[in-house]
Every structure is written in C-alpha cells, then in structure tokens.
Amino acid sequence: MLNYRQLHYFWAVAKTGSVARASEQLNLTPQTISGQITLLEETYGLALFQRVGRQLELTETGRQALVYAEQMFQLGGELEAMLRAGPQEQILFRVGVADVVPKSIVYRLLAPTMEMDDTLRINCREDKLERLLADLAIQRLDLVISDSPMPSHLDIKGYSQKLGECGLSFFATPALAKRHAAPFPTCLQDAPLLIPGAETVMRSRLLRWLGEQQVQPRIVGEFDDSALMQAFGQSGSGIFVAPSVIAEEVCRQYGVTLIGQTDAVLESFYAISVERKVKHPGIVAITEGARRQLFHW
C-alpha cells in the first residue's frame, strides 16, 4: 500500500525545489526527508528525482507522480477545511459545464436549483468535456452538462441522462435578413454564415443538413463559444444559429430577426453523473425542470 507520508515528503520537495527548503517547511531534518523518499523509490524500483549539477530535478516518472500527488493533497486540504468548519447547513452542488453548451441553455437548466431553499449552494465550472469527466470520476464534480452523452472510449464510470432536445433556429440582423430575403432555407445560399466549432456535436449535423437542402452559404466564422458567435451575429457579421428553445430570448437579447427554423437538425443536452439512480437534490431539480419546463417532455 502506498505510504502517504513518504508521498507527502516527495510532494514537498518537488514543490519547494530542494530537500533543504522542504525540511524547513516540514520542520524535519534533511536526512529524514531524503531517507523516506529513497524508501519510496526503492519500494517501486523507480527514480523520482535526478541530480543535474547541483540541482535536484524530477524524472519523467516523478513528473507524472507529482500530478497525482497534487490532486491528492489538494483534496486532502479541502477535506481538512470542511472538517474544521464543522457541520454544514448548505449542500455544495458542483456542476461542470462543457464549454460548447450555450450559456442561455445552461442558465435555464440550472435555474430550478436557484428556486430551492437555502440548503443548496452551486459551484459552476466551464471546461472541455474530457477534463470535466476526469474530475467527475474522482468526485470533484457532482454533475456534468454536455451536448453529448458519456463518450464510449473513456474508461470512466458515468451515466448519461438525456435532458431534452430541440431543433435549430437561424438568426440575422434586420439589415442582413433584408439582403437575403428569399424563402428559408434558400435564403442561406451564398449568405455569410457563422457556425459552431469542430468540437460541437451540432456542426456536422448542420453541415449535413445544408448539403441535403442543396444550399451553399459562405462560412465566415467558426466558434466553440456560442456567446461569442452570437456577439458576431449581433454585429451583422453573418447569419448564426442557436437552439430553437431559446429563439425568443436570442431575438430579444441581441436585437436580431428569426429567419428560419428546422427540426431536421436536433441538438441534445445531457446530464452526466456517477449515479445510475440520481439522489442529489440539485440533479433531480435539473432533470425534472428540463423535462417539464424547458423541453416539455
């Protein structure tokens, strides 16, 4: 079994850069720290440090071990802070949001949790899906919201619940809409179009649908961040797309015109958790709110 005290000494030396500084920080003799790290290396038959001149540097194995040690001692610090704080009246609800999910959708999905009593406190973080799922696996997150279910190639235990789906709407400033006033979707022919980036599920579905409609717009911008795409659309840079469920909100917020909609291109949203049977009150509020209020299942 891993000796966590030895690992802590290794982590301290790696962070401070020397045995001497680590010994001052831990209030131990350099010999004690060096001896314990040597025992750790001998246990696994691997070198964690190497001498380069007078400097002590991490080996490749040491660098990999440091990543895990960082996570372990960060979680340990959080645990200690929680225990010292005593009983908590609030339940912390840690939500990870894939950066490709439109912010308006995220807000409306999370809104039911804000209507609960004061026992729930939300901690919301946006990142790439795979990094969020890695944190979900080690229980640093309670839930991940994504535009796709749990990827099958990841060796992570998780369960996907479909929150809902909706069609796609197309928007343009009044001036741009006037210049491309043909019936939809013919109006998209040769029109400047802003589309979701390569990391989104929607991109390939949209391009396939455009091919089926035999229209060829001019793609002038690609965006992983939907809010940035909408900002460019608001400026008149091109026609842009958003989920139909927030069409009225997009028109009101950005002062644009709805020029067409299609249900042949569906965008789906998922809640990914480590529980097959959901028990967390925050997750229950999100799933029930999505089905009853947002997507009207």
Rank of each mutant, 00 (worst) to 15 (best):
W11T: 02
K15Q: 11
T16A: 06
G17T: 07
S23L: 09
L26G: 05
T32L: 14
T38S: 09
T43G: 06
Y44G: 02
T61I: 08
R63Y: 07
Q64W: 11
E70N: 12
E70Q: 07
F73T: 03
L75C: 03
A85I: 01
Q90T: 13
L92N: 06
R94A: 05
R94C: 13
V95L: 14
D99Y: 14
K103W: 15
R108H: 11
M114K: 07
R121Q: 01
I122S: 13
N123A: 07
R131E: 05
A134M: 09
L136R: 09
L136E: 09
I138Y: 06
Q139W: 03
L141Y: 15
V144Q: 15
M150L: 15
G158F: 15
Y159R: 04
Q161I: 01
G164A: 08
S169N: 13
P174C: 05
L176F: 00
R179T: 02
H180A: 13
P185F: 04
C187Q: 12
Q189I: 00
D190M: 06
L194V: 04
G197D: 07
T200W: 03
S204I: 06
L206H: 10
R208Y: 13
E212C: 07
Q213V: 04
I219M: 02
I219Q: 09
D224F: 01
D224I: 01
D225W: 02
A227E: 03
M229N: 13
Q234I: 00
A242W: 10
A247R: 14
R252W: 14
T257A: 03
T257M: 07
I259D: 01
T262Y: 08
F269Q: 12
F269W: 15
A271W: 11
I272C: 10
R276Q: 11
R276L: 10
I286C: 11
T287M: 15
R291D: 04
Q293C: 12
F295C: 10
W297Q: 11
